[in-house]
Each structure stands twice: as C-alpha cells, then as structure tokens.
C-alpha cells in the first residue's frame, strides 16, 4: 500500500472510553518516543470489516479521537485502529478489541430533583441521555436504550446517620414519615440488570 518500512514501536493500549455512548478512542504514545509523533485512525464495523479512515484524525499529534458519530448505532459492534508516524518511519496498525457500545459504555448518575413537605420528601429522577452529535438531534434517554434500567436511591438522615435504600423502576419516589426540621441527603444510582451496568451515585 505504498507505506514506508514500519520500524517505529507501536501505539499502546488502544481502547475505547465510552460514557453515555460518547465513544472516544484513546491510546498511549509508542514507547520511548517524545514529541513529534503523528497518528492516523481508522475504524471498521464488525461483520462488514472494511476499514474506514477518520479524516478528522489524520496526522494528529494528540492521543485520542472521538468516534462517537461513527459508532452511534449501538446495534452494531466495532473495531478501531491507530498507526504512528515519526521522522519518516511508522508503526504497525494497532487494533482495539471488539467494541460493543451497548455493553461497553459507562453510564452517568441520574439527575435528582427533590422537593419536600415537613414530613416527606418527593424525589424525581432523570436518566442521562445518549450522546448525540448536535443539540438539534432528537434526544434519546438511556431509559429507552436499556429496558431493564432501575434506580437505587439512598436517603440519609444527617443527624442520626440512619440510611434507607430504595430500588425503583419508575422515576419518582416519595419518602414519608420523616422528622421535621431535619436535614436529609438524597443520592441515586442507575442500575441496569442486563447487560450489567451501574452508574456511580449522584452527588
């Protein structure tokens, strides 16, 4: 393919980092190389296999490349690959393992909004949205992507340090019989039963 003789060490740890299906390819520079290394990136759909170059990540010197648009169909699986160039020589193409956006993404905690009366707290939870390429694009809640999505909610009495845990499938929860004039801390986590995915707890 007219490429140079490739004696440069390979890029290392080529992998996807994904949050809410914003899928970014990351890698480490080849061992022992300082500045001046440039990279090319390509990706392939599993089952199709044809490599497709990513023009926006051609001859870049950073060590990441956002492939969210190219991997947005979460019914497909993908590979990506990186090649390094330095002073007229190059490395081999280094590939990721097979990337499945549905199971290999991380999920942000839900948004938590709380209102209260003197003896109860009402909690409304909102699941994060799937990454989208532009604000005009239709929003897809991760609730639509993961039918088995549930919420784990923790309510802490800050004075007695007593904590309650609730696991709910719908997005609202009312906690009654609380002590008037007492501070409570509410935190929530997303739990997907299958594939097994857990977000962190909200602040």
């Amino acid at each position: 393919s007219g490429e140079l003789y490739c004696s440069l060490p390979n890029p290392r740890n080529v992998h996807f980092e994904s949050i809410n299906m914003k899928n970014v390819l990351h890698w480490s520079a080849p061992e022992g190389t300082g500045d001046g290394v440039f990279y090319k990136v390509k990706y392939a759909v599993y089952g199709v296999g044809k490599w497709i170059r990513k023009p926006e990540c051609r001859n870049i010197n950073r060590t990441w490349c956002d492939l969210s648009s190219e991997t947005s169909d979460y019914e497909e699986q993908y590979y990506a690959s990186v090649k390094a160039f330095l002073n007229g020589t190059c490395s081999e193409w280094m590939e990721t393992t097979r990337f499945n956006p549905l199971t290999d993404t991380k999920i942000d905690p839900p948004m938590v909004s709380v209102s209260s009366t003197d003896r109860s707290i009402s909690i409304i939870l909102t699941a994060p949205e799937k990454w989208k390429s532009s604000p005009e694009e239709e929003s897809i809640s991760l609730l639509q992507v993961y039918p088995g999505l549930q919420y784990n909610v923790s309510v802490l009495n800050k004075r007695t340090k007593k904590r309650w845990f609730f696991s709910i499938s719908n997005n609202t929860l009312v906690v009654p019989w609380l002590e008037p004039g007492t501070a409570y801390c509410v935190s929530a986590q997303i739990h997907v039963t299958t594939p097994i995915l857990d977000s962190g707890f909200s602040k």
């Binding site: 392939a44 599993y46 089952g47 296999g49 044809k50 590979y79 393992t97 199971t103 594939p195 097994i196």
Partner: peptide, 22 residues
C-alpha cells in the same frame, strides 16, 4: 448467561480474527 459470557468475552473474541463476517 450474560454474566458468564462477560467473564470470557475478551478471550473468546480474541480467538476470532475475521472482522468481515458475522
């Protein structure tokens, strides 16, 4: 099934070099 597969997914898929066919 999902839990069992997740535990061996990387090892199994790394034994399949054919990207162009599913």
């Amino acid at each position: 099934i999902r839990a069992g597969f997740t535990a061996i997914k990387a090892k199994i898929q790394s034994r399949d070099p054919i990207r162009s066919l599913s």
